[in-house]
Nucleic acid binder design. Structure first.
Length: 591
DNA sequence: TAAAGTATGAGGTCATTA
DNA sequence: TAATGACCTCATACTTTA
């Protein structure tokens, strides 16, 4: 939904004070023996000359709390000069495997393959000083479970106040869960985030601008820890895409067959309501992670080809009511010929397309159009099969329309607007280039689809709604709510792109909105203090809506499809952070 | 200098076939 | 059941042009 984030905003300085703040805490993501844990001063010391070229790298990882020997081993395993992310992955694997063994000791889970591996692995590092499982076993008979946990946590180097807090909040929890609690507390202290209630610590809000990369990795680590211990319901069962991709049903469905109710986890229930969107076809496991963070709500996958003439496969996670949805009227045309009748005259019979593929941010080049014209022209009558296949493949890939004899062309920006449910010229003028129009529209919601989902809010907010719109882009959610007839009282819109902010501002003024539009440029600057202040002044948020960047998830990205931990897509964790903060402030009450 | 033009596959799902 | 192939995908980086 939102525009791609500016790269300048995500240059991480590994030596910032913020990083040191994190470095100074024991890296609870790993319970491995770690003599350097919490000791920043020894970073890098003792590195062998053989690894001098990696000393900075080693220093960084040691600073995160990994034992130096493990870091060296991870670098060796991945090879000299290997990617930092690969090394981190290996280190996290070590820690997860270790957790598995610990979990076995706690009678939580059994994973023989992992523990076998770990046993061999740990034997390689038997000289590392730390708390000992064997030592604990010796005392096992004479101590209560609680006392054992307390001793273990103390030996792991956690501060007394955190241990006390964890023991008070989770008195009967096994050791693994207690370390999770402390881990979350440290994370939140570093980040200012509110975490799911079962591990939510009391925290002081702090604004963080730097070190986001490591924090996101820590979030990912927390997820991995839970997953490995079998705390995830879907563990082993990846979320799969439904077929047909119609979510809880379409406006045209027989209403008696539509699912009318669903059970939400108590923690997920509004207020505030929230609505999250991203591409459906992500690398494996991404939606499992997103769902886990968003209170275990399964995604609703919908292809917008059921709402307009172009496909748009997207996943939505929300806590909205799902019965008595209603669509925007009039319906949009569902076929190419209905949407673009003039193309019918030139459409060859062997082009069997009735729908367009997903509208993206780039269009087919003029040279390609020319190549296609020549390929089709050089034939008497119908082109041979191999030419038809070539032309059809390119037409599908680039969403080309037949606009003249043997002539194909990409969609115009205003045709994007039509298909996506925006007012004509929504993105036109005001200084935006044609290229940027394509980019903004290609990153947007399909308004009719989103409006159908949001429609259940209308009876709940007859006097208007306060909306926090994250990664607003060109305002798909705002347009959807407006077209539904839900008055917009206050909209706090966060969008990194200036041209997109201008588009929303222009739309806001053109449509004579009675409410207030407050915009920010960077979600990372929206900390809990600011949220609390905003909520106090406008009376809280009724809806938190947004789709975080898909750059690193989308299949079209041939360069940096790095998954949810990618540079831009990891901003999902900011969506979660902000949503959780809003929930927390709402429940606690604001001034 | 901004805008437009251009070339650049992999990863995943699903249906079909051996 | 495994192998194979068809199909689709909210993009990025570099070059050229105005």
């Amino acid at each position: 939904m939102g525009s791609n984030a500016s790269g300048d905003d995500f240059d991480f300085d590994w030596d910032t004070e913020d990083e040191l703040e994190i470095s100074e805490i024991p890296f609870c993501g790993s319970n491995l023996p770690n003599p350097t844990c919490g000791d920043v001063s020894c970073n890098g010391e003792g590195s062998s000359s053989a690894h001098s070229s990696n000393s900075k790298l080693i220093q960084d990882f040691v600073g995160m709390g990994f034992a130096e020997k493990l870091v060296v081993k991870a670098i060796e395993e991945n090879g000299e000069g290997s990617a930092e992310s690969k090394i981190l992955e290996t280190l996290l694997t070590y820690s997860v495997l270790e957790n598995s063994t610990e979990a076995e000791n706690q009678c939580i889970e059994s994973d023989h393959s992992s523990s076998d591996y770990l046993e061999g692995f740990l034997s390689d590092f038997s000289d590392v000083e730390s708390w000992s499982v064997d030592e604990d076993k010796e005392n096992a008979d004479s101590l209560s479970e609680k006392e054992k946990n307390l001793r273990s946590l103390e030996k792991m180097g956690y501060s007394a106040d955190l241990v006390k807090e964890a023991m008070n909040r989770c008195p009967d929890a096994p050791l693994a869960e207690l370390t999770d609690f402390i881990f979350a507390a440290q994370l939140a202290r570093a980040d200012g985030a509110h975490l799911p209630a079962e591990i939510k610590p009391k925290v002081n809000y702090t604004c963080s601008g730097n070190g986001e990369l490591k924090k996101r990795r820590l979030y990912a680590e927390l997820y991995e820890r839970k997953k490995h211990r079998g705390m995830l319901e879907e563990d082993g069962e990846m979320i799969r895409l439904p077929k047909p991709m119609v979510g809880f049903g379409l406006p045209t469905d027989d209403y008696s067959k539509i699912v009318r109710e669903r059970t939400l986890p108590e923690q997920a229930m509004g207020p505030p309501f929230f609505y999250y969107e991203n591409v459906a076809l992500t690398p494996k496991g991404v939606w499992d992670t997103i769902s886990r963070f968003l209170y275990d709500i399964p995604p609703e996958f919908v292809d917008s080809k059921y709402f307009c003439a172009a496909a748009r496969k997207r996943g939505y996670i929300h806590n909205l009511p799902i019965h008595n949805r209603f669509p925007l009227l009039p319906y949009l045309p569902l076929t190419i010929h209905e949407a673009f009748p003039l193309t019918k005259r030139w459409w060859p019979s062997w082009d069997t397309r009735t729908n367009l593929n997903c509208l993206q941010t780039a269009i087919g080049s003029a040279k390609l159009q020319d190549r296609i014209r020549k390929a089709v022209e050089n034939n008497d009558g119908e082109p041979p099969a191999h030419v038809q296949k070539y032309v059809l493949d390119e037409c599908k890939k680039w969403n080309l329309l037949w606009v003249g004899r043997n002539k194909v062309a990409p969609l115009e920006p205003d045709e994007f607007e039509l298909l996506l449910g925006f007012p004509r010229n929504h993105t036109r003028g005001g200084g935006i280039s044609r290229t940027d129009r394509y980019k903004s529209l290609g990153n947007s919601f399909q308004v009719n689809t989103v409006a159908f989902h949001l429609s259940t809010l209308k009876p709940l907010y007859p006097d208007g709604i306060n909306v926090l719109s994250l990664f607003s882009g060109i305002g798909g959610a705002e347009v959807a709510l407006h077209r539904l007839g839900i008055p917009l009282k206050n909209v706090v819109s966060v969008e990194i792109s200036e041209v997109n902010r201008n588009i929303v501002r222009c739309w806001w003024e053109q449509t004579n909105q009675k409410g207030n539009l407050i915009d920010f440029d960077d979600v990372q600057m929206l900390d809990a203090n600011k949220l609390e202040s905003l909520m106090g002044s406008i009376g809280g948020f009724d809806l938190v809506v947004g789709g975080s960047p898909c750059n690193n998830l989308a299949g079209s990205n041939r360069v940096s499809r790095d998954g949810l931990e990618g540079k831009e897509s990891s901003l999902f964790y900011d969506y979660f952070r902000i949503l959780d903060a809003v929930k927390s402030i709402t429940h606690r009450g604001y001034v």
